[in-house]
Design a protein around this nucleic acid. Sequence first.
DNA 1: AGTCCCCGCGCG
DNA 2: AAAGCGCGCGGGGACT
Length: 553
Amino acid sequence: MLLAGPEEASPRRLSASAWVDEVRAHPLNRWVWNDTRQWYPALLAAGVEARRCRDLRLAHEILRTSAHVTEPAHLRAAAQWRSADADALVPAVDAAMTLFDLDGGAPRGVPTDFDEVRAEFDRQRAAVATAIHADRLQLLLAAESAGALLAAELHAAGLPWSRAVHEGILDDRLGARSSTGRHPARVEALAAEVRAALDDPTASLDSQPKLLRALHRAGVLATSTSRWELARFDHPVIAPLLAYKKLMRLLSANGWAWLDEWAPDGRFRPVYVPSGVVTGRWASSGGGALQLPRDLRPAVRADPGWVLVVADVAQLEPRVLASMARDETLAAAARGTDLYSGIVAGGVVTTREEAKFAMLGAMYGATTGDSGRLVPALRRAYPRAMGLVDEAARVGDDGGVVTTWWGRSSPPPGPDWRGVQSAAGAPEASEADRTRARRSARDRGRFTRNFVVQGTAAEWAAAWLADLRTQLAAFPLVSDEAAAPASGPVFSRRAHLAFFLHDEIIVHAPREQAEQAAEAVRLAADRATALLFGTFPIDFPLDLRIADDAAKA
DNA sequence: AGTCCCCGCGCG
DNA sequence: AAAGCGCGCGGGGACT
């Protein structure tokens, strides 16, 4: 059951087939539905695109907790719309789903009943109407919903993936694949080297406790087996062991098994989870889409006659911070392409690396080490920007809630956190109680410090994506297959988004649309900046290239 | 056999 | 080299 139609008109009930016809006839309408994941994959498979929507499930989550919503009581009472309660019931995106299911499938997840869907839409409109910064919340809900559409489209499109290139990298790095169930040749050779250096022919290298004991027996008194700690030791076992660990990582995370499971047909199709992170960042599920190793990027390869437009934003988070805080000094340092060089040019620190670690330290809450040591210099140079994150940390430390530019609020502290704090305040509290409470308050302060920046950066990225997606939807189809019966996503015949990772996008484009797509990417970034920050003088420069593969320069 | 947690490492 | 934020995943091991 769907609630459909432009929001100005009165909602109507539609059968699935009537709805498909309706979407085709009125592509510019905004469709309101309970949960994009429940309907859109099947529609895409049927060759139907939705241009705009309101995803009530995602919007509910934002509005229920936003500090800018002054009257949340009705929304909060509608617990059936909470994702956390409903998610366990939502079928996997890839579940065999046909258009018949749209009418007859057993309803699961958030409510599908027409009247309940309409009631939730009304609750949300009322909540926004009385909210502070209602205009920003509207933008957030629109961007969030566009993200929901895009997530389904990205999955349907897939990231073009060359099995041959991937296999070539594996052969090159790991050596020949064993046919006898053993590790590949180079991995086996390194394992033998490690065991020889340990003088322990049966040492187990893949079990952390066993490896640590074997190292101790050989005189390497490490406390962990992490790469950073092992690298400090001067012992013949270290070099082959680190090499072994590196190769084993490639083998287990992105080896032949990964290739067979996640890119069997020349497309990598992760499940994207918009707002899967509390800050509003996307998460992903399956295949490790958010952790594709740099070394494997050459395997991302455009189809014949197509190219990739690969673009990322340079230093997105510090630029967002400067804009939120209206810090014109930091914004001036950010002018041009490299914010960190701008900080050095301002005489704040002496090297680009120092500028980078100081800025990361300021946004993450570093207190010790080189990073923590450099933060005070930044605080002196950019009091407005640093004041914003310091204040966010103070609020979190104090048990409060912080909110992004467009109105997404951090979760309030849970009962465990409050329990630790109140225990430390009791008369009989021990020093250990107070220490634990201070540490937990600081931990939360670092979280809220980062939340406002990471969350607003996610909003900038969402605005960028939504604008770009709309632009690309107007590109002409390039093949003459339009006359053929619809099958598969329509957008696979024109430039379309194929990947998104926090501050980076990949567009897969027919060669003749490449320049136009690249221009759309740039224009979308400029519009996103204006949409969030108006006329504040800040640059969000893109690193953009058009290439056959996505290898980093 | 299934479930949970830890460790380590990949990404932004 | 830097230890500060947010994730997902695979492997091992402890437990039921």
